[in-house]
Simulated scan of single mutants.
Amino acid sequence: MQRYTVAAVLIVRDEAPRLRRALDSLRPWTDRLVVVDTGSQDNTVAVARAAGAEVSHLRWCDDFGIARNTALERAGADWHIVLDGDEWLARGGETLATLRTLRPDFVGAVRVDSDHGPQGHTSVASNWISRLLPGHVRYTGRIHEQPQHTLPVRRLPLQVGHDGYSAVALDRKAGRNATLLQRALGDHPDDPYLWYQLGKDHDVYGRHADALHCFNQAEARLAGLAATPAWLHDLSVRSLHALKCCGRHADGVQRASDGMARWDRSPDFFFALGDLMLDWAANEPARATELLPMIEGAWQRCLEIGERPDLEGAVHGRGSHLATHNLGVLRQFGPRVHAPK
């Protein structure tokens, strides 16, 4: 039986506090750890070498696709598992190890669980991302780069943790992604995925009006795609949140009505709708009598659907304990309830 090689491939910069966690999680299940450093000022390189990684250097050129491909070339394995320094393999190492006996004729999508919010009040959102690549596959794109291939994609029982949305991490990366996305859009102004990602960056940093503009630009360009992208779910939910934050409650309810048929099985969609209507009731108390039953119905619908971690951007708990908590608050205080800060 042929034995295939498996390499973990990371591009990093100033990830010393987190990198050992990533490498330790990957070492038992891979043949090699390959790290490309793009200009660290801390002791990232020493940490990587101490963890048993092969380390090389690349001058940063404001292009993640080039950096990824450089790292893949230097790894040169039959299979590559691609992670970042603020990620780690949380579950599924045994599946990764079985690749040594599997022909590299598909791309593997793994579930990346990202922590959001301040310490002690985090929420976890899941995204399915193609991170397990046959040796010949390479990336394109300056930022939010995508592997280019015509192979089938399989969702694998691999779970990756990610804490790159912590307050400290966001401060460290502030402005970087938006700048690169705007450059990328200068080259590809009709790419809906880039518009979505720029909107997501605005949303993460609280620039909600800018986020809405970008989300609308993304949706306007979807007609040119052969299939509906999985990220449309996350865009739709984030749009409701942004409309709430902009005080455009009536527009949000209309947008939800337009998307109801598509997202009838999404707890995230109904959770965001209930949150938007609660904010409306708090800002316009005269509407509370009309809105409160609708809010309750939205969060009850979350529980009827249950958890849907298969949906892009799904936040854990919106189909269970988070909806239950909100319903408890709503029923306890009734018309006196105020929107959460």
Rank of each mutant, 00 (worst) to 15 (best):
Ile143Thr: 06
Gln2Lys: 15
Trp263Cys: 11
Leu225Ala: 02
His188Asp: 14
Thr324Ile: 06
Phe270Thr: 02
Met294Gln: 15
Val315Thr: 15
Pro285Glu: 10
Arg138Lys: 06
Thr38Leu: 13
Gly259His: 12
Ser40Tyr: 12
Pro340His: 00
Phe271Lys: 04
Val153Met: 00
Val160Leu: 02
Val35Met: 00
Ser236Cys: 12
Trp231Ser: 08
Asn177Phe: 08
His136Lys: 11
Pro189Met: 07
Thr150Ile: 05
Val107Ala: 05
Leu99His: 12
Ile66Met: 06
His80Asp: 06
Asp275Val: 11
Leu181His: 01
Pro118Ser: 14
Ala71His: 02
Leu58His: 04
Phe215Glu: 01
Ala226Phe: 03
Phe271Ala: 04
Glu296His: 14
Asp115Val: 14
Arg331Asn: 00
Trp263Asn: 10
Val237Glu: 06
Gly85Lys: 05
Leu243Ile: 00
Gly297Trp: 07
Leu10Ser: 13
Asp268Met: 13
Ile11Asp: 08
Arg111Met: 09
Arg142Ser: 00
Asp42Arg: 02
Ala167Lys: 05
Ala125Leu: 01
Arg172Ser: 15
Arg18Leu: 10
Ile11Ser: 14
Phe270Gly: 00
His149Arg: 08
Val35Gly: 00
Trp195Phe: 03
Leu132Gly: 06
Ala250Ser: 14
Val34Gly: 00
His321Phe: 15
Val107Gln: 03
Glu145Ser: 13
His149Val: 06
Met260Gly: 11
Gly108Glu: 11
Gly186Val: 08
Ala211Trp: 08
Gly206Phe: 03
Gly85Met: 05
His249Asp: 04
Gly39His: 11
Thr140Cys: 01
Ala314His: 11
Leu133Ser: 02
Gly108Ile: 07
Gly313Asn: 04
Lys200His: 08
Ala272Val: 01
Val9Ser: 06
Thr140Leu: 03
Arg32Asn: 03
Ser320Lys: 11
His144Ala: 13
Gly117Trp: 07
Cys245Pro: 01
Ala90Trp: 11
Leu10Trp: 13
Ala16Tyr: 08
Ala90Ser: 15
Val82Asn: 02
Gly199Phe: 02
Gly319Glu: 09
Ala178Lys: 12
Arg154Phe: 10
Arg3Met: 07
Val107Glu: 04
Glu290Trp: 13
Thr228Phe: 04
Arg68Gln: 09
Asp24Val: 08
Ala167Ser: 14
Asp191Asn: 13
Arg183Met: 14
Arg318Thr: 08
Leu278His: 07
Asn43Ser: 14
Asp275Lys: 12
Leu232Gln: 12
Gly186Ile: 07
Ala272His: 02
Pro28Asp: 03
Gly297Asn: 13
Leu327Glu: 10
Leu330Met: 05
Leu212Glu: 09
Arg265Met: 05
Leu99Ile: 13
His202Ile: 11
Gly306Phe: 13
Gln41Lys: 13
Val153Pro: 00
Glu312Arg: 12
Val55Arg: 00
Ala174Asp: 09
Ala323Asn: 01
Leu232Ile: 14
Ser320Tyr: 13
Gln197Tyr: 04
Glu219Pro: 02
Leu33Ile: 12
Gln146Phe: 08
Pro335Val: 13
Val315Lys: 13
Glu296Tyr: 14
Gly76Val: 08
Asp42Gly: 06
Glu15Lys: 06
Ala169Phe: 14
Cys214Ile: 05
Leu198Asp: 03
Gln146Lys: 12
Ala50His: 07
Leu330Asn: 02
Asp203Ile: 02
Gln2Thr: 15
Cys61Asn: 10
Leu291Gln: 07
Lys200Tyr: 08
Gly117Asp: 11
Phe333Thr: 03
Phe215Gly: 00
